[in-house]
Design a binder for these strands. Structure first.
Lengths: 208, 208
DNA sequence: GTCTATATAACGATAGAC
DNA sequence: GTCTATCGTTATATAGAC
């Protein structure tokens, strides 16, 4: 896959991957066209097959990269050894921040996983991604100490991720219905970087 | 002998629409194949073109129906003249319930709107769908009365819908990662029909 | 209305010159 | 490595018999 020759600047392979990332993330595997990717990369269609044998392998490169961008960061932050509420605040801020910079990423990943669950499972477990038990311990300990309400860790985790991810995936819908500009929606998302954490902590906290 | 034409009131057009709904919702516009829809309907491919001129018009029929299923119910429930907290409880229970019965619906609609925002906007406003001001009044009045925290109505609405919709869209992801069966995931969703409302009300309520 | 057969276009992939 | 030209397949869509 990688050029065997000496290192080159602004390699064609990188151009292809950049173009493929853009097109696949927007149009999906079924909707993307090899010609379109070639045009976006500013090179010829045959080059795509030279570097990546076929469409499926090119997609696989983009998809696995996307999975690698969207899941490990969750695992990483949830593994910090800091107080639960701090962890939630950092997670929400960081995660919304990342998704805001890659607005097509979550929709792309969700859709393609729905389309090919098996391909995802391989990728997920082969890369050794594993959701951290420490976060569940955090929650259970906080419940025991009477700091938060009784709630299943998975229930809380899904709530947190839902509040971060959904507004990115539903961006065209909300933008359309409320006739918001790109800037206005980004301002909305920036507010959420803080307010969502408040929303969650308010909900589970027992100290008032 | 009676004419056998009238006896066949199973309706070919309905068969086609049912098949198209199933295939399009799962595979999307780009991924669906006319042949696959014909097979699913148990009829010939040419019939699809006889009743619906082309793929795009067949898709349009499915898509507009889907939009009509997913938005008006929101508007309807949010228009009830009942106390805010009751409204939230009913909304969450009803909406998750509907989506649970149509698990591919929200992902399909979100994805296709992202893909063709303009087509959606026409549909949305042509059908006169409009988000109810009464719900925003509910929220602002509750804030004034000191019943809930200060929160932008749109912020709260997005939170509510996120908590209902996301777990449906992310079903294959969560199911895969946690190795849950279909039944286990449905149990999870049924729990959410009540717990999500608690989560929201806990978060915004000022009375404790 | 429903079918079979076929036209027409689009797409992924390859061959071969340079 | 990069290009042009083209092959083979598949997909949408139409024609025409019944």
């Amino acid at each position: 896959m990688v050029s065997q020759n000496k290192q080159r600047e602004a390699g064609t392979e990188a151009k292809i991957l950049n173009a493929a990332r853009k097109i696949f993330q927007i149009k999906g595997l079924a909707g993307a066209r090899m010609q379109e990717i070639a045009d976006e990369a500013g090179i010829n269609k045959a080059m795509l097959h030279y570097y990546y044998r076929n469409k499926d392998q090119l997609f696989q490169a983009v998809f696995s990269e996307a999975v690698g961008r969207i899941f490990p960061i969750i695992v990483q932050i949830l593994s910090y050894e800091i107080p639960l509420f701090d962890k939630i605040r950092i997670f929400v801020k960081e995660y919304i921040g990342i998704l805001k910079e890659n607005p097509y990423l979550p929709g792309f990943v969700l859709n393609e996983i729905t389309q090919h669950p098996d391909k995802f499972m391989e990728l997920f477990f082969d890369n050794g991604i594993e959701f951290p038990k420490i976060f569940y311990d955090d929650i259970n300990k906080a419940i025991e100490k009477g700091e938060i309400i009784e709630i299943e860790p998975l229930m809380l985790l899904v709530n947190i991720i839902a509040l971060c991810v959904f507004p990115i995936v539903a961006k065209p819908v909300v933008k359309g219905i409320y006739n918001l500009t790109e800037d206005e929606y980004n301002t909305f998302l920036e507010k959420r970087e803080y307010e969502v954490a408040d929303f969650i902590i308010n909900s589970i906290s027992l100290k008032k």
